Simulated assay, not measured.
Amino acid sequence: MHEIANIHTELAHGIPSAAGDYARAKVGALARYAPADVPVATARLDFDGPHLVVAHGRLDVNGTPVNAKAAAATYTEAVDLLQDKLKHQLLAMSD
């Protein structure tokens, strides 16, 4: 099983710190789908207008960047969608 060594989170002003913990947990869970160890991953949460949270994710998989973006009404929904998109890309790398 592979691991994600460092997970950095960036939260826009107004996004609760619990969102960072949630994003770290969800991104960390992606390690099982990675075809190699991931030295660095970043999750950034921001607002797009007054009612939309946008989650951006980037993983460095053996020098190959894996990026995704997802938007939803809540940070949990946005991070869940982001996790799904990143998972899909990681699985495609393993094929």
Rank of each mutant, 00 (worst) to 15 (best):
M1L: 14
H2W: 04
I4G: 06
I4A: 08
I4N: 05
I4F: 05
A5C: 01
A5W: 07
N6R: 13
N6Y: 08
I7G: 05
I7H: 05
H8F: 08
H8W: 01
T9R: 07
E10F: 10
E10N: 14
E10Y: 12
L11Y: 08
A12M: 06
H13I: 09
G14T: 01
G14K: 07
I15N: 01
I15M: 07
P16I: 03
G20W: 07
D21K: 14
D21S: 13
Y22F: 13
Y22K: 06
K26R: 13
V27I: 15
V27F: 06
V27R: 06
A29H: 12
A29D: 04
A29C: 02
A29G: 12
L30T: 01
L30G: 02
Y33M: 09
Y33D: 11
Y33I: 04
P35A: 05
V38L: 10
V38P: 11
P39H: 05
V40Q: 11
V40S: 10
A41S: 02
T42E: 12
T42M: 11
A43G: 08
F47P: 01
F47L: 14
D48C: 03
D48N: 13
G49E: 00
G49L: 03
H51A: 12
H51S: 13
H51C: 01
L52N: 14
V53Q: 08
V53Y: 00
A55G: 08
A55P: 08
A55Y: 01
H56Q: 04
L59G: 05
D60P: 14
D60Q: 11
N62W: 03
P65F: 10
P65N: 11
V66Y: 00
A70M: 06
A71W: 01
T76M: 14
T76I: 09
A78C: 11
D80A: 15
Q83T: 13
D84P: 02
K87D: 00
K87T: 08
H88M: 11
H88R: 15
L90H: 06
S94C: 03
S94G: 12
